[in-house]
Amino acid sequence: MHSVIQRGNSILAYALSVLACLTFICFASTVFLNYVTDVKINTVKVVVKNVPDYSISREKNDLGFLTFDMQADLTPLFNWNVKQLFLYLTAEYETPSNELNQVVLWDKIILRGENAALDFKNMNTKYYFWDDGNGLKGNKNITLSLSWNIIPNSGLLPNIFARGSHSFKFPVEYTTSRM
């Protein structure tokens, strides 16, 4: 004898286990894929200013401004287990006070189905390039690199560096004029 509750229970249990199994297959089918591609980054205009960062204190900190070109075709990165790419452009550099500084200058969310062939010319940064002190003026080695965080339907959340980065130097003088 099977009551309604027993039947419902077994249907639910079966449906859930099928769903769990499919989810695992979806995860396992993409877990070993390589998500690295090439990107071309170039800076167009680079200046540095020395202004107070009122969000921290009244002390003057170095504030970099730059515009950049970027070309990348990220279409091959998408598959059935990539819901979204989170792109971020990082500036990485060393200063006398800090061994490692990483500042995200720009980011972008690309959902599956959206255009993933990027070609930006003379883009402005999305976030301010504040240094933690005065380490930008005359800094000879700032590396810009693009990375992406893959958001799957279910699975791991890897952060991947693109092949191809760009290094530049900041001018040795502060810019005082308005831009």
Binding site: F86, S97, N98, E99, L100, N101, Q102, V103, V104, Y127, W130, D132, N149
Partner: peptide, 10 residues
């Protein structure tokens, strides 16, 4: 949330 800026000393 996601890390936006980071400064690491020696």
């Amino acid at each position: 949330h996601r890390v936006l800026k980071l400064h690491e000393k020696k």
